[in-house]
Every structure is written in structure tokens, then in C-alpha cells.
Simulated scan of single mutants.
Amino acid sequence: MDHSFRAFIKQADEPFVGWDFSYITDSGRMRSEPLPWSYGSMAIRAIQQASSMLDMGTGGGEFLESLRPFPPSVYATESYLPNVTIAKARLTPLGVKVVQIEEDNRLPFQTGQFDLILNQHESFSAKEVRRILKNDGMFLTQQVGGLDCKGINEMLGVSINHEYADWSLKAALKELKTYNFEVIKACEDYPAQRFYDVGALVYYLKAIPWQVPNFDVEAFLPSLYKIHQKIEQKGYIDFTQHRFMVLAKAK
């Protein structure tokens, strides 16, 4: 295994904080093909018409912070304790109440408390979202589908997580319609995610442990080296993402 391979692997030890991939995106080491919609633009448009809102799974609050100005009442939830601390430090001065939760189907909010709920890449219970939304309230979500980057798993010889394999736009729409949501807009896409070095891929996999459970660099070293060789030959390697979005109104 050559020196550059080892150097890239070592570089992937950089700590991952909050929900911030800038270590590999700002340097251009990982890029994603643009989606045919902008969740951020849709979120800002919805926020302008809201008086109370919730951001589910806010991570470190980095994305929510970028959506200012906020309506008078703003809450955010997060389940991962280290991120809760980061999110509170970032968002509390902006008037956002950050709440740690354990389960998506039991949220500590009043019935009909919000007229907008945002959810980017966070699991949700359609029943519970409907409970805490006002009548005619809006729910905007962008989700990672069950087939996301399955090519990574194939190259590492690991099965995809079958618990989520069927999670798709079709499945989400069925659940939302069951709980009295009117779908305003929905879209599904399979953009490419490109890695320009194996270290960026390793950093990515460490940050999202659900993609390859119990991911360990040493255990996958031979497979990672094969990926490194492919990148050295072509200049990059692409994997297919799975994304979908839904904008729905509570009836």
C-alpha cells in the first residue's frame, strides 16, 4: 500500500463536529450533484409566512442559523447529546429554544403548537408531526432514501441497512396521507456523490455510522485500497445518492 494511501487514511482522523462537512467540501474533496430543488430556498419561503416553527434534528444548528430571520417562536430538537451542546451555544443567542429528545414519536410539544415544521435528513413520525402542527400548518422535509450510496456498501462487501431499504418518496407519501396531510409538492432524485480521495470517503463514513455499521478502517483496509486505486486511475469515484422532498399541509 503506497504512501499517499496511508496519508489520506491518516488525514481522515480529523474530528467531525456538529453536522459540518466543510473539512472535505470546502477543499473540494467531496462534491454532490445538485438536486432539482433547493430545500434551503423552500425553507426560507415557508419561514417568511410562519409565526411559530420547529426544526427537527437540527444537528449543531449550522443550517438553521443560515435561515434567519426567524419568526417570533422558534424551537429545534436534537437527539445526539454532543450536538445539543453545540446547537444551544449557536442558537440560544438567536432566540431558538433547543430541546433534547429521545424519540421522534413522542415530542415534548403541545398539540397544534407550530404552523411550520422543518425536517432535513431526520426521521419523523407523521402522526406526531400532525399532532403538533396547527390546521393548515406546513411540513417541509428532505429525506435520505433507503438506497443512498449503496455502491459504497457493495465495494466494501457490506449489506445495506434493510430496516431502511424501502424508505422512499412513495413510502413517505403513504404515511403522510394516512395522517391527514395534503401533499403540495414532492420530488425524488438520485444525484451522484463524488469523492476525489479515499481519505474524504473515510471521513464521510466515520461521520455517518449508519451507512456502514461498526465501520473500522483497519478491517476494511484492503477494500479501501482498491477504492484508492480506482480514484488514482480515474481521478474520482462516484456513488449514487437517494434523496426526496415533500412539502405537505396539515388538513
Rank of each mutant, 00 (worst) to 15 (best):
M155A: 07
A171Q: 13
K174R: 14
G95N: 04
K134R: 14
E182P: 00
L173Q: 15
V158C: 03
I47K: 02
P69K: 03
F63M: 13
P82N: 05
V74P: 00
P34I: 07
K249M: 14
Y23F: 15
V84K: 03
A76T: 09
L107W: 08
I208W: 10
Q142D: 10
S41K: 15
V202K: 04
K134E: 15
P209V: 08
Y75K: 13
K251L: 13
T178K: 15
R90N: 11
A219L: 11
G28K: 05
P222T: 09
E122Y: 11
F21P: 05
Q143H: 09
R194A: 04
K226A: 12
E163Y: 11
E163K: 12
L133N: 11
E33H: 03
G57P: 03
S38A: 09
Q120G: 05
E78I: 02
P191A: 10
D26V: 00
D2T: 07
E218D: 14
P15C: 01
N105E: 15
I101L: 06
P36W: 09
A172C: 13
Q233I: 12
I231R: 02
Q48K: 15
I101K: 04
W210F: 13
E128H: 02
V198L: 00
Q241I: 00
Y204K: 06
Q113L: 06
I101F: 04
M138W: 01
E62L: 13
S125G: 10
E188P: 07
V17P: 01
S123N: 12
K10T: 10
V74A: 09
R131H: 06
K226N: 12
N135K: 13
K185F: 15
A50Q: 05
S27W: 07
V84S: 05
A186S: 15
G157K: 08
F195Y: 09
Y164T: 14
S159M: 10
Q143E: 15
M42S: 12
P82E: 07
K249P: 02
L205W: 04
R90V: 08
A171N: 11
D148F: 12
Q120D: 09
Y190K: 10
G60H: 08
A192T: 10
L147F: 01
K185M: 14
R131W: 07
A186Y: 02
M138C: 10
D115P: 02
F181S: 06
G112S: 09
Y204N: 03
Q49M: 12
F63N: 10
I231P: 02
F21T: 01
D13K: 04
S223R: 12
S27R: 14
E154W: 01
D216P: 00
G199H: 02
Q233H: 12
P222C: 08
K170N: 13
M42W: 14
T141A: 09
D189G: 00
G145Y: 03
H121C: 01
G157R: 09
P36M: 07
